[in-house]
Amino acid sequence: MILISRTIPPRTRQAFSDALVKPFELLMSTLDLLLMPLQRLLGMRRMAYFFVAPNMIIFGVFILLPMLLNFYYGFTKGQSILLTKREFVGTENIETLLACEDYSNPNTCSEDLFWRGVRNTATYVAAQVSTMVLLALATALALNQKVVLRGFFRSVFFYPVLLSPVVVALIWKWFLRYDNGLLNFLLESLGYERVQFLADASWARFWVIVVSDWAQMGFYTLILLAGLQAIPASLYEAAEIDGANVWKRFRFVTLPLLMPTMTVVLVLAFIRAVQVFDQVFVLTGGGPGTATLYIVQYIFRQAFVVSPRQYGMGAAASLLLALVLLVLTLTQLYFARRSEAT
């Protein structure tokens, strides 16, 4: 802009500016033409509702209405997707989902795949959230230092977040394949045996966590980095004068002041981990067997894969999932606020 203002004569500059502004003026005056009569009709106060309405309509149609429909579906059964043609069965679907002789053995449950999904999801959430938050914190701490190429590294860690989960899963699938997979090619070149990374249950579970960590870590690193930068440097200087070493500065300055940000990160990561689906669906399809079948895939399977479709069962499972998420999130927030207060 400085270059333009120095080299372009004022009249040309004015013409250039007019060319940019005029269309906006025209657009605004057209909108004015439409909105002025409406404002006269509704009055100033009600116009606020008019402006909020588009967002509320979108929220109502695409979020609230599906939630209410899902709630009702959970208490019905039948093949039709029309509510009027579905039979109301009360809590039958939920009772079927929860019916189990021995909860430690999914094979004894009437919906064994639901319980396999629950068990797999619990393991996944614990492992994925903990490893990812630790990695994100370590990365944020490193990127908060005055390191060479800091901007470049910040971009590198954030880049996977920009990728679609399907793209991420496909890239890793090609990387991990037994036949013609890059990782197995490297192992063979080094004289090792190829490994069935996606056909062995333990390996598949491991890689699902690694891929999720890789894909999401940048996002949480960025949030934690923002939290770290909000901590006043004077506190570290004071701690240093008092003789606090690196660990003590981290333990007694960084960690307490970062706790509100950590809570946000934990809640977000936790909810996202429970909802894991698309990435794993493309990477392993829930296999081998049902080793990486998580709860959302179970819901998807019941509603859109099995034949005849079990819409009611899928909806009931998603109600249970929502309930568990709500309870756990509230508990987490309660403890976070209590620790903040103390």
């Binding site: 996606l198 056909a199 399809g285």
Partner: peptide, 19 residues
């Protein structure tokens, strides 16, 4: 037999066509 067909494919149809 290739494990990619029955073992790796989770809950989906899969074929051994590529092999």
């Amino acid at each position: 037999t290739p494990l990619g067909v029955w073992v790796e494919s989770g809950g989906e149809y899969a074929s051994a066509r590529p092999e």
